[in-house]
Amino acid sequence: MIMTNSIADFFNYFGEYHDDLLIMVAQHLQIVLTVLAISIIIAVPLSLVLYQSQLLSSIVLAILGALYAIPSLAFFAILIPICGLGMPTAVTVLVVYVQFILVRNTLAGFKSVDASILEAGRGMGLSKLQLFVKVQLPLALPSLLGGLRLAVIATIGMTTIAASIGAGGLGTLLFDGLRMDYAVKIVWGTVLAFLLSWAANRILLIFERRSLKKSRGELKTAIRN
């Protein structure tokens, strides 16, 4: 009886508050996408720089790894005095977190490109930029996208915690639910966050697999007849 009640409550809540839920999903996505955009803009050039120096890359990866190990709640707490409450603080923290995942994978991608392929490219007169765009990036892409996928899933999860410092998003549902002891909100928050992660994972996996096939020269469309 209680069970069916809860299920009914669950759906009734949607009927009543679907606008709010959609707004929270949108907010959540906004944070995630902002974090990812900034992170990629930092991570790809950073990885390229680190690719030049073994020493530098082990130092930077150690630092990023250490930052990644700080619990997110503690990280938010440290940054609040500096950046204040709200979305900018949340985005900052998440960008720092995601660097570790993205840089590690992107760097691995660049390193996986065979030295002889790069030498052939340089030898035929490709400039640094041309070599990057035509050769290094497409060949590192599968690894980069693999990192991106992990980063997206981690960001979607951590963004729920960012609601604790007033950044908005699906975490708001969770924290409200906890405060008000209202399970329906918690369940909605969980289900939506899960669906977002699941969908992001599926979509990115498609791109990742495609780029992997492309980089290996295994696309089926290659040979006609």
Binding site: D114, S116, I117, E119, A120, G121, K134, V135, P138, L139, K214, S215, R216, G217
Partner: peptide, 8 residues
């Protein structure tokens, strides 16, 4: 020697 064709 290693040929170095672009695999993609």
């Amino acid at each position: 020697q290693q040929i170095g064709l672009f695999p993609h």
